[in-house]
Design a protein around this nucleic acid. Structure first.
Length: 919
RNA sequence: GGGUGCUUAGCUCAGCGGUAGAGCGUCGCCCUUACAAGGCGAAUGUCGUAGGUUCGACCCCUACAGCACCCACCA
């Protein structure tokens, strides 16, 4: 006997252990068609958030669905070393102890990060398991932690080195001194994508650069505008537009750079917009991307004025050396003012480039870096999508992908960090570069003993980009590469289309000639119930585990505010938690959470996570639980054998089952998880529970044992199929219930997760049964309406009269059902209806009434309202039908349908009018 | 500057060239032995605005407005 309500905690733990220890998550032979998903490897920077849980729910649903359909499924999982992000996490930990990574030294620091990685990686994998992820934990599990791969493990690292060496040998990786985005706090280059430029309030200054020989035609000098006055010390020219009449004569002349007392040329370049500001632009090639290009065009040598920590270096006049950049700005402005060279200072909105990781303002910095030439790979990447080898869902993301690849820049892949794949390049004492798979290989190639390895590491996305093939054993020619590449679908967020998706396409194509995946499903971004971005500082983040296990208000508050430094943040969060979670969060269980995610996964861009929805789906789980409980109570130990008779009610639910199975299959095929969740919900609750179970109660009481047997068989078989149907979304509860139901349905097996997925059988769709059931429902609902109208006492039963029998094949069964479901004491056909002042209604061709006195005024009001509605409908339908162009041009079926509707409305209206007369 | 998405019930969202839907919430009545995490019933909408195409538009087209996001080198 099942418990009275569904308690997820015990069920979940028990079944997950069983599934995993039985190795049911592993891929199978290579005979059957394969279905493979690559998990976007979570960063080992902490724990999983709602976005992860959402993605993983969808992936697991797809994997379970295809596994049940007999595919050789392989959900390849792993974790990402997440270079910068992880290094920062560990550096912060050291900071709390008053240490820096330099106190430890590189070797010990890296050792420290590895320790952290073990801890974080383990907690991530625990979370995924709690959610029910049927991932292939033992696949590519080099470190033996049943956690899949780690992007820095030995095997993955080998692939990284191999790719780097090959790209270098092909000339697609090169090293050079370039202007790159520099994070002065981290002391590393970052890629364009890792820089966020937001508009901020700042200032713009106008500076006067005087002519060396005194005023020229009334002008003291040229006035330039700048938002970064401190960079003036690195200026090498002033540029004007070549066609600008004001300055044309001055081109080739010089101005004096104040403070630095250097003379710099006036040059002409199209880049200058003569209409903006004064039409003169200071050129600082070493510290501005545009100026760098201008400088190159004019053969001007950049002057680097910053040290790597963004303090001024020795290239500037002595009084400024060593100053931090903003301190330098203040001093320079003061000095310019003193010299009369500061023309103006105005407030200005400017776009400030900040490092995505530290929030620090990045400094364009001339440094030696490694790059991947992207032009050729980008072309291939565009082509693969254009040819449909890779498809985006929703499709419009293709535009985003294309636009980025069409304007791609070379990718700076070197980072001046300690945590990551160290670049396999060595230098001799002359600075010559040697790239190879190992120091030994390089020594031999170079013929030199004294080599020094490049200290830099690779951008973390470099190794991520290889995952589709490196996780399958590349560079070995493995069977798995043939089987699981391309993978079936990638499920990921739009924020990493550039970082990751595009780069995987390019590099996988380049090294394997295959695309990495056939489909890309871009999932919605999870927001809170009000549509606000989830962020720690707002306190509106949710931990998926808290939704599964529940959490008290106090604990939640404690958790949300831990580690917060700012007092006003703390206050805001306390308020948020108090308002939104006054009672904390109840334990919804993993299934309810998963069902919520699925039902919210439409193709819209954001997903507002509403706790109320989650509660609704927990209730759904409980409904399913109790329906099973009912079935077991009525079927266990009872006769399920032949001969059995099926009524139209039995055939109806079987017919509905075929339809929902087809709907679910279609929804899976187009990644409409919301549709399939709704289809299952509606079938189980509104059809099976609300109607079939209620009617089954009657049939079980039938004197005919064949009807009883038929009902029991139908109850059990439909439920068993429904459990399999729902399993990919709600795996735990369906497994628990299936174990009890399956034997009764004549099914054997250790687990539901390896059972065949229900397949719609169109030949079992029964139009007659559906029609008759629709009539049964309609008559029942009408009778119930009349009951409500008549304000009957709770248990009160009344007589029911109708002018005709329900238009069904099996009148006897139908009438008995209506009597029972609408609680009628009798059902009699009388035409005309008895002359009582009772609530009446029209059902199709028939009229019906309850034998119960009614307040004439209330009844008049109700019928009046109904007749007004009908008059409106009639007017609309008539207007259509009297419009010749509608009758001529609309399809015949539509015209006929409209005629039928009109006739129906008119018949109903006349009956209602007759009743109104009587009142 | 370029691009994308969104605008439908109080809230969160589906939807389709032919009768506007769901969940949650709201309002009645009911503890009817599967389930009160429940049952039965009810109310609620100029489908952002203005045009156009069409016999017919919430749906297709155009413009506009508002919201959100992405990309881009204007000092």
């Amino acid at each position: 006997m099942l418990d009275k309500s569904f308690e997820p905690a015990a069920v979940e733990e028990r079944w997950y252990r069983r599934w995993e220890s039985a190795a049911w998550f592993s891929h199978r032979d290579h005979q059957t068609p394969s279905y493979c998903i690559q998990l976007p490897p979570p960063n080992v920077t902490g724990t999983l958030h709602m976005g992860h849980a959402f993605q993983q729910t969808l992936m697991d649903a797809l994997i379970r669905y295809h596994r049940m359909r007999g595919f050789n499924t392989n959900w390849v999982v792993g974790t990402d070393h997440a270079g910068i992000a992880t290094q920062i996490v560990v550096e912060r930990q050291l900071e709390e102890k008053g240490q820096s990574r330099h106190d430890l030294g590189r070797k010990d620091f890296v050792e420290r990060v590895w320790q952290w990685k073990q801890q974080s990686g383990a907690s991530i994998m625990r979370q995924m398991r709690r959610l029910g992820a049927s991932a292939n934990w033992t696949y590519a599990d080099t470190e033996g932690q049943t956690a899949g791969y780690f992007t820095m493990d030995a095997k993955m690292s080998r692939a990284v080195v191999e790719v780097f060496v090959r790209l270098y040998e092909e000339g697609l990786i090169y090293r050079g001194k370039r202007l790159v985005n520099w994070d002065p706090v981290l002391g590393t280059a970052v890629s364009d994508l890792e820089v966020d430029t937001d508009e901020e309030d700042g200032k713009i200054w106008e500076l006067l650069y005087p002519f060396p020989g005194g005023p020229v035609s009334g002008l003291k000098g040229l006035t330039v505008a700048t938002t970064r006055p401190e960079t003036m010390l690195g200026d090498v020219a002033v540029a004007v537009h070549p066609e600008d009449e004001r300055y044309k004569p001055l081109i080739g002349e010089k101005v004096v750079l104040p403070l630095a007392s250097r003379a710099i040329p006036i040059i002409a370049d199209d880049y200058v917009d003569p209409k903006f500001g004064t039409g003169c632009v200071k050129i600082t090639p070493a510290h501005d991307f545009n100026d760098y290009q201008v400088g190159r065009r004019h053969g001007l040598e950049p002057i680097n004025i910053f040290r790597l920590d963004a303090h001024l270096n020795d290239a500037v006049p002595e009084q400024y050396r060593g100053l931090e950049r903003f301190e330098a700005r203040r001093k320079i402005l003061l000095d310019l003012q003193a010299q009369g060279c500061l023309v103006s200072e105005k407030p200005y909105k400017l776009r400030v480039p900040r490092s995505g990781r530290t929030g620090e303002i990045v400094e364009p910095m001339l440094t030696d870096q490694w790059f991947v030439a992207m032009e050729k790979p980008a072309k291939a990447g565009l082509e693969a999508v254009a040819k449909g080898e890779v498809k985006f869902f929703p499709e419009h993301w293709t535009t985003t992908y294309n636009q980025w690849l069409e304007n791609i820049q070379d990718w700076c892949i070197s980072r001046q960090l300690w945590w990551g794949h160290q670049i396999p390049a060595w230098y001799d004492e002359h600075g010559n570069v040697f790239v190879g798979r190992s120091e030994e290989e390089v020594r031999q190639k170079a013929g030199k003993a004294n080599l020094k390895r490049d200290p830099d590491v690779l951008d973390t996305w470099f190794s991520s980009a290889l995952v589709p093939f490196s996780s399958l054993g590349w560079p070995e020619k493995t069977k798995d590469l043939e089987t699981f590449l391309p993978s079936s679908v990638l499920i990921t967020g739009f924020d990493i289309i550039f970082f990751w998706v595009a780069r995987m396409v390019m590099l996988t194509l380049h090294f394997t000639g295959k695309v990495p995946f056939r489909h890309v499903y871009i999932n919605a971004i999870v927001r809170d119930a009000e549509g606000e971005k989830m962020s720690k500082s707002k306190g509106n983040t949710l931990d998926p585990l808290d939704l599964i296990d529940g959490i008290t208000h106090d604990k939640l508050l404690e958790k949300s505010t831990v580690g917060l430094l700012k007092a006003d943040h703390r206050k805001k969060i306390e308020k948020y938690v108090k308002v939104h979670f006054p009672q904390g969060i109840p334990a919804f269980g993993a299934d309810a959470l998963r069902f919520t995610f699925a039902s919210l996964a439409s193709f819209s861009r954001t997903l507002n996570f509403d706790l109320n929805r989650c509660e609704g789906y927990r209730n759904f789980c409980n409904k399913l639980w109790n329906a099973t409980r009912f079935v077991l109570m009525n079927v266990e130990g009872q006769d399920l054998g032949e001969p059995a008779k099926l009524t139209f009610i039995d055939r109806w639910i079987v017919s509905r089952l075929q339809r929902v199975e087809a709907d679910v299959e279609a929804a899976f095929a187009e990644y409409r998880f919301d549709h399939l969740a709704a289809a299952i919900y509606h079938f189980v609750w509104d059809e099976y529970c609300d109607w079939y179970l209620e009617l089954a109660k009657l049939q079980l009481a039938s004197p005919d044992p064949e009807i009883q047997r038929g009902t029991r068989r139908t109850l059990v078989r439909v439920l068993e199929a429904a459990l399999r149907l729902a399993h990919p979304i709600i795996p735990f509860i369906t497994e628990e219930l299936w174990q009890k139901v399956a034997p009764l349905a004549g099914k054997a097996g250790d687990t539901i997760m390896l059972q065949p997925y229900p397949k719609s059988q169109p030949e079992r769709i029964d139009a007659e049964a559906e029609h008759d059931m629709a009539a049964l429902k309609q008559w029942t609902v009408t009778a119930r309406n009349l009951r409500a109208e008549a304000k009957l006492a709770p248990g009160e039963r009344v007589e029911f009269y109708a002018t005709a029998k329900p238009p069904v094949a099996d009148v006897e069964t139908t009438v008995a059902a209506i009597r029972s479901l609408a609680r009628l004491s009798s059902f009699e056909v009388r035409d005309p209806l008895p002359d009582h002042l009772s609530p009446t209604a029209v059902i199709g061709e028939a009229r019906a009434m309850l034998h119960k006195p009614v307040d004439p005024a209330a009844e008049r009001a109700r019928l009046g309202k109904e007749s007004t509605r009908l008059e409106g409908e009639i007017q609309k339908a008539r207007a259509k039908l009297t419009n010749p162009s509608f009758v001529e041009r609309a399809p015949a079926t539509i015209v006929a349908q409209e005629r039928t509707r009109l006739a129906g409305f008119e018949a109903t209206l006349s009956k209602i009018r007759a009743q109104l007369e009587k009142l």
